[in-house]
Amino acid sequence: MREIIIIGSGPAGFTAAIYAARAGLKPLLLASSVEAGGELMNTTEVENFPGFPEGIQGPALMMKLQEQAEKFGTEVVLDDVTSVKLDGDVKVVETGYSGTFEARSVIFATGSAYRKLGLPDEERLSGRGVSWCATCDGFFFKTKTIAVVGGGDSAMEEATFLTRFAEKVYVVHRKDTLRASKIMQDRAFLNDKIEFVWNSEVVGINGENAVEGLTLRDTRTGLQSELPVQGLFVAIGNDPRVHLVHNQLDLTADGTIAVDGRSSRTNLPGVFAAGDVIDAHYRQAATAAASGTVAALDAEEYLAALDQVEHESPAKLAADLVAAE
C-alpha cells in the first residue's frame, strides 16, 4: 500500500507532490489523461506567479512543476480517476486503465471546470462558434467579430488575447463594473478592438450551423437586443470538480470540498483537499500552490501520527518484546 495518492495535476497537485516527495513519501500523482497540467495548460502568459519576472507560458510552468515533483520521486500516471472509496484506513482509488490503487492518505486537487451559461443552444453550437478556450480556438476567428462573456481576469485575458485574431471583441458583462484586476482591466480598456457591453446578459445564442449572433437582455430594463457575432467565448467562472466525492465528503454552500479552518483536512481522516476544489474565491496559481503545500504537510503529520499509534499499540509492543527476546 502507498503512503499517499494525489489526484489532480495543477499547481496544487504538483506542489503537494513536491512536498510529499521531499518528505520521502513517494507520492503517486494521478494526472488525468487529457487534462494533465490543469487549467494553466490553456493559458498563455502567466505574469503573476512569483519567481518569473519575465512571465512564463502556462504549459511551460506546468512542465517545470511536474519535473520538480518527479525529481524527488513522484510517480505521475496519466489516467483518469473513475471512483474513490475514502472511509476506512485504506483509501481505494480506481482509474480508467491503470487499475486500482490503495493508500493510507489521499489529497484531492481536482480543481474546477469551466462554467457553462446553461442556454439551450450552447451545447449544440459548441465547436461551431461557442468556445471556452481562447488559446485553443481564437485562431479560427481571424477578422471575425466575437463576444466574450464575463467580467473577471480570465474574461479580460481572453478578450485581450482574442484581439490578435478578431476584428472586434465585445465584452458582455452583467454589471457595470468588473471583477478583474486593475492591470487586466486597463489592458482591456486601452485596446481599440475591445468594446464593453455593460449590464447585459446573454439569453440566447442564435445560428443554425454556426453562431450568427446573441440575444442580450439588459439587466436593468429587461429589454432585449441582438448582437451579431460569429463567435462566443464563455468566461463566467468555474465550478469545483467534486463529482468523485459526492456523498463521501462534506461540501460547502459554494460547492467546494469543506475543510477545517486554514487546514486541508476534510471530514474524513486521511483525506485532504487543496487548490481550486476548496477555494471558490481566490483561485490563483500561487494560492493553489500554497494550498497544495498545506495539504502535503497535513498529510505528512497525519501519517506520522498513524505510525506513532501503530508503534505504541499493545499488539505492536508485545510483538516488539517477543522479537527482542
Binding site: V34, E35, M41, N42, P59, T135, C136, F139
Partner: peptide, 9 residues
C-alpha cells in the same frame, strides 16, 4: 495545431 495543448493531450 502545434499551439493547441488539448491536441497534444
Amino acid at each position: 495545431a502545434e499551439w493547441c495543448g488539448p491536441c497534444r493531450a
